[in-house]
């Protein structure tokens, strides 16, 4: 029995009035296309949340076990750099949000400016991160690479940190667990930085396209979704800052 056309009578009106060039063939409307892309982006962010979730779990377990080591380890991080970086990233989130607004309201120059600022602030963040990493390398605080316990067994040998926090020496058994703290520090900030680098790469691409007016003619989905990604990175950092830098500063 051939009944392939049984729906012919009551089928929906097929085509919509206008068909912009960016409407892909399998969608019925640009609305549906934008909705689908946005939702997909959110789901992607869920996977990111769970990916970082594994790291946060590890952090919490070891922080509970080796609290003194984590405190001493965190005193090795520079709060000024950390706070500055937090502010930089928040600012970049703001410029990104403004970029989305510019795209939605079809302001081409505004969009290019916002994206460029975001790009720049992203680089500033990574620059500061590099300075911080360099410091750790110099002090042999990189796990697995001639890791040194000196700052923790004999805090006074590390006068810069000592004069601020007056940490007591840790017993060797606790001191060695600072290595775990730094493993997690590098893992979490490194994974975060990797996301930043990818984001900055995409930003560069977007700036070029935005100058050609690609996002200010009604098809701003890409900018909106990239914005979600960028804000997500910001959120991760907000937590990393609280957990890694601010364990206890008194």
């Amino acid at each position: 029995m051939q009944n392939s056309q049984i729906h012919a009578a009551n089928s929906a009106p097929l085509a919509h009035e206008e068909h912009p060039s960016y409407l892909r063939h399998h969608f019925n409307s640009t609305e549906q296309q934008a909705d689908a892309a946005g939702f997909a982006m959110w789901l992607f962010l869920l996977t990111e949340v769970m990916f970082f979730g594994g790291l946060f779990t590890a952090y919490l377990v070891y922080r509970n076990w080796y609290y003194p080591a984590f405190v001493s380890g965190s005193h090795q991080l520079n709060v000024v750099w950390g706070t500055t970086n937090t502010a930089v990233l928040i600012l970049s989130s703001f410029t990104m949000a403004m970029g989305v607004w510019c795209a939605q309201t079809r302001r081409r120059r505004g969009l290019v400016l916002c994206l460029a600022l975001t790009f720049f602030l992203g680089l500033v963040f990574l620059g500061i991160k590099t300075v911080e990493y360099r410091e750790k390398i110099e002090k042999h605080h990189v796990p697995g690479f001639h890791y040194s316990l000196q700052s923790f067994l004999d805090p006074q040998s590390d006068p810069e940190v000592y004069k601020e926090y007056h940490d007591k020496a840790l017993v060797p058994d606790m001191a060695r667990h600072t290595e775990l703290y730094f493993s997690l520090y590098f893992l979490m900030t490194g994974m975060h930085a990797l996301h930043m680098i990818i984001g900055i790469g995409i930003l560069g691409f977007m700036i070029l396209r935005a100058r050609a007016g690609a996002y200010t003619a009604g098809h701003e989905t890409f900018v909106v979704n990239f914005g979600l990604y960028w804000h997500f990175i910001d959120i991760i950092w907000i937590y990393l800052f609280a957990l890694l830098y601010l364990i206890s500063r008194h």
């Binding site: 990111e48 990916f51 979730g53 594994g54 590890a58 070891y62 290595e179 893992l187």
Partner: peptide
């Protein structure tokens, strides 16, 4: 994603010895 990060950690443990799964380092 959680198994993905678990595998990343195993790889780093094997290559760099980061210690998160290593009892001798407190993991």
């Amino acid at each position: 994603p959680v198994v993905a990060i678990a595998i990343v950690l195993v790889a780093l443990e094997r290559t760099l010895g980061i210690g998160v799964f290593d009892p001798t380092k407190g993991g």
